[in-house]
Nucleic acid binder design. Sequence first.
DNA 1: AAGATTTGACAAGCTAGCTTTTCATTGCGA
DNA 2: TCGCAATGAAAAGCTAGCTTGTCAAATCTT
Lengths: 67, 67
Amino acid sequence: MKNSIRLLRAEKGWSQAELADQVGVSRNSVNSIENGKFDPSLPLAFRIAHAFGLTVEEVFDKEDAFT
Amino acid sequence: MKNSIRLLRAEKGWSQAELADQVGVSRNSVNSIENGKFDPSLPLAFRIAHAFGLTVEEVFDKEDAFT
DNA sequence: AAGATTTGACAAGCTAGCTTTTCATTGCGA
DNA sequence: TCGCAATGAAAAGCTAGCTTGTCAAATCTT
């Protein structure tokens, strides 16, 4: 599932490790999600969106959920 | 993670099996999610929200993601 | 250019999400 | 009241999400 994490993270000037800390997962998880290796769980998706002050819909591309 | 699926489903007059069909999972998955046994994946959460014409935030209680 | 930070990637292992199957219970229409 | 639809629940099995650890490559910083 596509997402805007890399872009949003760049805007904030955060490293993957910093974002990982904020949302309570490992850096590898953030890296894998950014690179599309797997989707975050729903709770994690909420925490990531919250870290950027956005909604889940604004961060993750829901089109991928229907294809 | 709490959600309003049971209520929304009642409003639509859908059985668990009908909703399951619509979103492409088994009836047991819908039952388990409704009864809080586990959270849906992010793509499934999108499909469930879409079935009700709502956003993920409107169907699932994101507070649970932070506690 | 050297050193430090950041990122990408992989492996092995554990847990959560989802499946099919099955059975018991509940509630409702004929 | 009989039968059927709907729900709840449990087991066993597979895959996805997430972990720690490690290493190499890329990108800053100075």
